[in-house]
């Protein structure tokens, strides 16, 4: 420990840390820039939306998605780009059950498929309350579910991360897959909205 790190402004601490890491040969500027380029270019809820739209359009893919999320992501070329090695579990909304994802311990979340996580997902309020008062939390998001719909709350971890498959909206029977995908939002993929 340097013993002084907490007294420096945070940006200066990061700069110092980065310089030490690069000097130690643990990272290069190019590698660090590449991580961010891939995040900005590749990590997007458009990816999760493509999986949902395919599931809506293809029952067989839907079954494979529920059975093995990682393999189903891989089928669309959306495998885990950072090699984080987590299990991806897809959970599907039905009239009987709505699914809501939280990470009470931290912020575990499939960034590549859902895009960078929104601030509220990482907030102490969401983390603490989603498991205790999910219906009240959903109401804050403007989502009022029928009283008869149960809410399943999934607590993500470093090892298992979740993707909610929203229910397919009525009247979309003839819609092409790309248009279906455009209906799916990041909140829909987390479960704080329906589609």
């Amino acid at each position: 420990m340097t013993g002084t790190h907490s007294e420096l402004p945070v940006a200066a601490r990061v700069r110092q840390l980065e310089e030490r890491v690069i000097a130690a040969g643990l990272a290069t500027d190019a590698e660090l820039d590449d991580v961010l380029a891939r995040l900005y270019d590749g990590a997007s809820p458009v990816n999760g939306a493509r999986m949902v739209a395919r599931a809506w359009a293809d029952e067989s893919y839907f079954r494979r998605l529920l059975a093995d999320g990682n393999a189903a992501a891989g089928e669309l070329g959306l495998g885990d780009p950072y090699g984080l090695g987590y299990r991806l579990k897809a959970v599907a909304n039905t009239p009987q059950q709505h699914n809501l994802v939280v990470c009470t311990l931290c912020s575990c979340y499939p960034v590549s498929l859902l895009g960078p996580s929104p601030s509220w997902y990482k907030s102490l309020a969401y983390r603490s309350r989603a498991v205790r008062k999910p219906r009240a939390v959903l109401a804050e998001f403007g989502l009022e579910l029928p009283a008869g719909t149960e809410i399943a709350v999934w607590d993500a971890s470093a090892e298992t991360r979740y993707l909610v498959v929203p229910a397919r909206p009525a009247g979309t029977g003839e819609m092409p897959e790309d248009d279906l995908a455009a209906l799916v939002t990041q909140r829909g993929l987390i479960g704080t909205a329906v589609v």
Binding site: A11, R15, L39, A125, S128, R132, F141
Partner: peptide, 24 residues
Amino acid sequence: DIGGQTGFGPVPMAEDGQPFHADW
């Protein structure tokens, strides 16, 4: 380990779609 704890107030909804709010 805050799952279920009370006292953190309503969920802060403000969202600007930006993953980071400073270069650091």
